[in-house]
């Protein structure tokens, strides 16, 4: 693939803050027109990466091009071609939605009339057309975030950076945001999205780069990453919590590994190689032992388990010390 097909190309990005390396040689290549998820725990370097690519931060080492221009040498060419949705909703809370979009339109040098037209277009697109002159401070979190996204789209940028776009949103607002991102992707916008929600990366991203300790530790489609963990899993949910240890023991015997027990959910789970044999085996064993199972399920590993497998700790944990991995 030539660099012209890449909307984002970063090589060897390094950034230190005192003794901590926020980025430790991060490489990234995002083909134009695709959605890439940057997945990793807090402190992995996702935001630092986005800030460098969006011309807000200079790396100590390495270089990057966005939309075909070097972010360090030609930031002026990069900026009209990108949109940035930061972690915090960055709109003016005193102004109305329309005033915000017109302000950002003017700052993109659209001229008064074009800025007004573009504001109308974007307000309609994001269902904010009828909010009138209401100050953004009185918007709901979801509306505010949609306006934030609209403000990032003034010049219909080729590359869109979304830094944890749905953190803090309620489920409905989150789904609306997902729909909006999918629609933009369909129109050909390249999207680079950071998240520590695995389902978000699973739903939105064509490919995922797993980031940990300032570098990409794995890359692939969600399915590829899941198959990298290897085995499918069997989960058994028992009706009587008292029978859980016995069920776990049976599961361990059938799978030949240690079972992971979750007492809150009355669930025992274990990875299995031979899916069908293991499934019939555990059903039989539970019946022989007289354990009443509420549910027995064979499933692919979740991205959460993939993450644990790849990095040694869960996505929500910012910890740098290797977490104990249950078998």
């Amino acid at each position: 693939m030539t660099t012209t097909d890449l909307a984002v190309a970063a090589e060897g990005l390094r950034k230190r803050y005192g003794d901590t390396a926020a980025l430790d040689g991060l490489d990234l290549a995002v083909p134009a027109g695709t959605v890439r998820g940057l997945l990793g725990p807090n402190g992995a370097g996702k935001t630092t990466t986005v800030r460098i690519l969006a011309t807000l931060l200079r790396p100590d080492e390495g270089h990057a091009t966005v939309a075909g221009f070097d972010v360090l040498d030609r930031p002026g060419e990069v900026r009209p071609r990108i949109g940035l949705l930061g972690q915090r909703t960055a709109v003016d809370e005193i102004l109305s939605g329309r005033q915000n979009l017109e302000l950002f339109g003017r700052l993109h040098h659209l001229g008064a009339r074009a800025a007004r037209a573009r504001a109308t277009e974007l307000l309609d697109r994001f269902g904010l057309g009828d909010t009138g002159g209401k100050p953004v401070g009185r918007y709901s979190g979801g509306m505010r975030r949609r306006l934030d996204l609209a403000a990032a789209l003034i010049l219909a940028p080729a590359v869109l950076f979304l830094d944890e776009p749905t953190t803090g949103l309620d489920p409905r607002a989150r789904l609306e945001m997902w729909d909006a991102v999918r629609a933009l992707a369909r129109e050909g916008t390249t999207v680079l999205l950071t998240t520590h929600y695995l389902d978000e990366a699973d739903h939105l991203a064509d490919t995922i780069s797993v980031v940990d300790h300032g570098r990409v530790v794995a890359e692939g489609t969600p399915d590829e990453l899941k198959s990298r963990t290897g085995d499918d899993r069997i989960d058994v949910v028992v009706r009587d919590p008292a029978t859980l240890p016995a069920a776990a023991e049976l599961l361990a015997r059938v799978s030949g590994t240690t079972a992971h027990v979750d007492p809150d959910l009355r669930r025992a789970g274990a990875p299995v190689r031979d899916r069908a044999t293991a499934l019939t085996g555990i059903v039989q064993a539970l019946a022989d032992a007289g354990i009443d199972a509420e549910d027995i399920a064979l499933r692919r590993p979740t991205l959460d388990e993939v993450f644990l497998h790849l990095t040694g700790h869960r996505a929500g944990e910012p910890n740098r010390n290797g977490q104990e991995v249950p078998a």
Binding site: G76, R79, G86, D92, H109, L155
Partner: peptide, 13 residues
């Protein structure tokens, strides 16, 4: 604090 300054800095202005 609100990230508005950062947004301005990312614009072609």
């Amino acid at each position: 604090a609100k990230g508005v300054t950062d947004r301005f800095r990312s614009l072609p202005m």
